[in-house]
Simulated assay, not measured.
Amino acid sequence: MADAQPNRKPLRVGVIGLVHTHVHGILNKAFKQANQSDIEIVGIAEPNRELAERYAKQYRFPISLVYPSVEQMLDKAKPEAVTDFGRIIDHLQTVKICAPRGIHVMVEKPLAVSYDQAKQMEALALKHKIQLLTNYETTWYGSNHKAYALANTDKAIGDLRKIVVHDGHQGPKEIGVTSEFLDWLTDPVANGAGALFDFGCYGANLSTWLMHNQRPLSVLAVTQQIKPDIYPKVDDEATIILTYPKTQTIIQASWNWPFARKDMEVYGQTGYVNTLDGTRMRIRLKDDKTERSTEARPTDAPASDPFSYLARLLHGETKPDELTSLENNMIVVEILDAARQSAKTGKVVPLKQKL
């Protein structure tokens, strides 16, 4: 896998919002990495001047790159694509502004705060023929792609029976996220929910991928407020069960883990594969007497990072990745919406099966 293509110009990228601290990834790549030729940040839309000046100083970019509104940034900087690091509820507005201009959009996970908003975004993306991608850290884990290959390409573990996904950390306040991030991440309107959306989306994304974009028959979710003194408005603990005709997925999303984790267990009829992090894995196949450890390579992932992937995709140098795709992430938001409803009502939510 070669990310950089020295014979082409970098992709002109606009950054929308600085209040999601995942933005450090693209700022570090664009302004700190030597010899990176994938992307060029041509403009940043951020109305909070103090925040913009803080990052300009940290990453040594000219404050002239920053515009107070998305429209001004698009008009003056003329990016080919934007990456959205704002509140999840604002993703729809980003697409409303960018899609009619033919500007591609990559948002941070999840795609939207509701299935209704996701459908509006999908309609705009399809009408104006833009890429609308959702970025997850776990998309760039070689271990997940090796697990997928063992389960689906090689069919080494038999038909899938159970998928268990664990994601989360000790809590956003406990790990010291910025106040700008914490303010909206713990707001049920701006983020959709608490841990249920923040970390439940990873499992929904991976399960949908492993199940070839099959929608589950039903969704059941249980949420808790274990720390209401810290998170009075949102859940901090969530478990989601997805039922498929012959498979079950259990998503464990939490702001209460003792340590940060993003790992997965995939069980088939004849074997299993567990991912421990981005590279380390444990596997036991049909004829194995015990499990064995292995490691994935960086080249097992579609790119080394989302921004290299975005540049390669828009320059026609790589095929679309299913984990970032609109089709997958429409199902993810449908699952999250149903999970929120299930947690509120205490009932299983059946998903209407499309003909």
Rank of each mutant, 00 (worst) to 15 (best):
D3Q: 04
A4C: 15
Q5W: 13
K9P: 11
K9Y: 12
V13Q: 10
V15I: 15
I16H: 02
G17W: 02
F31R: 06
A34E: 12
N35T: 01
E40A: 14
G43T: 08
I44E: 05
A45G: 03
A45V: 06
E46S: 01
E46V: 04
P47Q: 11
R49T: 14
K57M: 13
R60Q: 15
V66C: 00
Y67D: 00
Y67S: 00
S69W: 09
Q72A: 14
Q72S: 13
D75H: 08
K78R: 14
A81F: 07
A81Y: 10
V82M: 05
F85S: 06
G86S: 15
H91P: 08
P100R: 10
H104T: 03
K109S: 10
L111Q: 01
A112C: 00
V113Q: 00
Y115Q: 11
E122D: 13
L124P: 00
K127G: 10
H128T: 11
Q131C: 13
N135P: 08
N135M: 10
E137P: 10
E137T: 13
T138F: 01
T139K: 03
G142V: 04
S143V: 01
S143D: 00
K146E: 12
N152K: 12
N152T: 03
N152S: 09
N152A: 09
T153L: 10
D154H: 09
K162C: 09
V164N: 06
G168H: 05
H169Q: 08
Q170E: 10
K173L: 12
W184V: 04
T186Y: 02
D187V: 04
V189P: 00
V189S: 07
V189G: 03
N191C: 12
A193G: 15
A195W: 00
D198H: 13
F199M: 14
C201G: 07
G203K: 03
G203N: 03
L206A: 05
S207C: 09
W209E: 00
L210A: 02
M211E: 00
M211A: 04
R215M: 06
R215H: 12
I230F: 10
V234Q: 07
K246H: 15
T247Y: 09
Q248V: 12
Q248R: 09
I250N: 02
N256Q: 13
G268N: 02
Q269T: 14
Y272R: 09
D277P: 05
T279M: 14
R280L: 06
R280G: 02
R282P: 03
D287C: 08
D288T: 08
E291C: 08
T294R: 04
S304I: 07
S304L: 11
P306H: 06
Y309A: 06
H315E: 11
P320M: 06
D321Y: 03
T324R: 04
T324H: 10
N328K: 03
N329W: 07
I335N: 01
A338C: 04
A339K: 05
R340C: 01
K347Y: 07
L351F: 11
K352V: 14
K354M: 14
K354F: 09
L355N: 15
L355W: 14
L355H: 15
